[in-house]
Structures are given as C-alpha cells and as structure tokens.
C-alpha cells in the first residue's frame, strides 16, 4: 500500500515533448512507473522514449485507462492544461511547473474542489511511492520502500531527508511534495490524513519551512493522529521581513515564524528535529527501534 499513486496508476504526461517533460519521462519509465501516453498539441503521432504522443488529453484517454496526469507545461499554459485534464475526467493531477500565476491557481483549485480532483502542486517535485510508481522530478536513487510517510513543502530539502532516511535503513511508503506556492492543491493536513489511513505507513515526517501558517494548521490535526509525527523546519536563521525564494518563505509581523511553528508542532506531540540529519534518529525512536 501507499497513498495517491501505486503500481496501478496509469500515467499521462502533459508537455511530454518539452525538455523537462522528455527527460523526466525517461526517468519515470526507468523507475518502473506506468507512463502510458503523452500529450503535446500539434505533436500527435510522435513517440517519446517509446511513449505515444497525442494532440489532446481526451484522445489519449480513448486509448488508455489513464488515472493520473503530470504537467510539465510552461506556466502560461498550465491553467489550460489542468482544465483539459480535469474536464477529461482525470482525478489525480501533479503540476510540476513553477511561476504559475496566482489567479490561475485559484481557478484550478476551485474547479478541482468541486469535482473531487486531487492536485499536487504547482511548483512541486511531485510524488513517489518507492518501488511502485513515481510522478515527479526527484532523483530515482534516493528512495526505498518502507514504513515512513514523508510530506514536504520544499523539494530539495525533502531529497536531503529522504536520502538520509534511506541511508539509515528507513524506507518510505510515499513521499509527497505539496509545492512552494501560496496556493497549492493538497495541504499538510490532507496528506497527513491519508497517511493516518494507510496501513503501510507507521510514522510520518513533515518537512516545513517558515512563512504562512500551514504547519500551525497541520498541528491541529497532528494532535488527533494515532501515528507519530517527526518534523523538520527550514528557516531558523532567516531574518524577518526578507522574502526567501518561495512565496511562502517570508516572515511578516511575527506570524509564521520558526518559533511559532516549532511551538505548535511540539504542543501537538510531534518531535521536531533541529538539523536535517537528526530526522532519521527521531524516526527510529518513533518506530520503537
């Protein structure tokens, strides 16, 4: 078992003929993910790494029982691509693209909520259920199957932590990247709830950062969880008022600070690691090993 994607996921790649779409299709195939088809308007009939390319999502869906789509389309075209996938009936969408306009994100999320579509991203590294399937841009080599669910706002930092877990002999059930934008699909709380229900997952690692109040909101749910949660947060040394990359990574008026997040998570019963390489040890303790 895993959450959101597994061996049964049949994957579509939107923007498969672009540089990133092409490269990461090869990586997903190498990982064993079932990439069935790609879409690239005007390029129908071509093949990318042996995957057939169609002009529209509906056309691809006539040929394959697609369950999920991953979007590599440049930012101005993401809204169109997401609506194309959703209106064709796809219920799981991973949007890798960064720099998607905020109002396009609002439109996509409103439609997804009404039609029960699960959206991961935008501006995410994607999702991987180690040994089963992968929809994303993360390196293939750093994961191994196991009992640890990982949910992160930030991509590279999650690689760091997943890699440490793997090197410590702690495999992962599923690793989910929420995305770094102000408006994204899945929230910490929604992913935590899925891990709580997933029989494979025994402990959850939450990788957060300063800014916004997503970690504080998640704390409310962590209090209710039966499974232990270990957290790491980036930004303990960030000066207030400076915007640090992600739309989320900004501290304003004492809200969303490192201290407020650590306090909320600790109060909810989560163990907060001070440094990234301490996560594995805390996970081991939580597993009772």
């Amino acid at each position: 078992m895993a959450i959101i994607i597994d061996t049964k996921s049949v994957i579509l790649v939107q923007g498969i003929t672009g540089k990133q779409g092409n490269f990461h299709t090869s990586q997903m195939l190498a990982y064993g993910a079932r990439v069935a088809a790609g879409v690239s308007p005007g390029k129908g009939g071509q093949e990318v790494h042996g995957v057939p390319v169609f002009d529209t999502v509906a056309q691809a869906m006539e040929q394959y029982p697609i369950t999920a789509s991953i979007i590599f389309i440049p930012a101005p075209g993401v809204k169109d691509a997401a609506f194309e996938a959703m209106s064709a009936g796809i219920k799981t969408l991973v949007i890798i693209t960064e720099h998607v306009p905020l109002h396009d994100e609002l439109d996509i999320m409103a439609y997804a909520e009404k039609h029960q579509v699960t959206i991961i991203g935008p501006n995410t590294f994607g999702i991987i259920s180690p040994g089963q399937s992968k929809m994303g841009i993360m390196p293939n080599s750093i994961y191994t199957p196991g009992p640890v669910g990982v949910v992160a706002r930030s991509g590279t930092l999650s690689y760091e932590i997943a890699n440490n877990l793997t090197l410590s002999g702690l495999g992962q059930s599923t690793v989910v990247g929420l995305g770094g934008d102000r408006v994204v699909g899945l929230s910490f709380t929604e992913v935590l709830a899925k891990f709580e229900q997933d029989p494979t997952t025994k402990v959850v690692v939450l990788v957060g950062e300063i800014g916004g109040n997503a970690e504080e909101e998640a704390s409310l749910y962590i209090k209710e969880m039966t499974k232990p949660v270990v957290a790491f947060l980036a930004g303990s040394s960030a000066p207030p008022g400076k915007r640090m990359g992600h739309a989320g990574a900004i501290i304003e008026r004492g809200k969303g600070t490192f201290q407020s997040k650590v306090a909320a998570l600790t109060l909810a019963g989560a163990k907060v690691a001070a440094l990234p390489w301490e996560v594995a040890e805390l996970v081991r303790e939580a597993l009772g090993e």
């Binding site: 960064e98 590294f125 841009i137 992160a152 706002r153 930030s154 991509g155 590279t156 930092l157 999650s158 690689y159 760091e160 770094g180 990788v207 950062e209 300063i210 980036a234 930004g235 303990s236 040394s237 960030a238 400076k242 640090m244 990359g245 992600h246 990574a249 001070a274 440094l275 990234p276």
Partner: peptide, 29 residues
C-alpha cells in the same frame, strides 16, 4: 543551493556551525 527550502536549511546549518551567511541564493530547479 537549489530550492528555497534547502537554501534556508543551508543558512541554518551555517549558523549551527558558527558561521554567518553572506546571502540567500536559490538557483532554482
């Protein structure tokens, strides 16, 4: 570094070892 989260964590780790960062640079994905 590449990624806002890892860049921030790198600054945090510099502080942890007693150093001081001159900048934040997220070279992006």
């Amino acid at each position: 570094a590449n990624g806002a989260g890892i860049t921030m964590a790198t600054l945090d780790i510099i502080n942890h070892f007693g150093g001081s960062p001159r900048n934040f640079m997220d070279a992006g994905g």
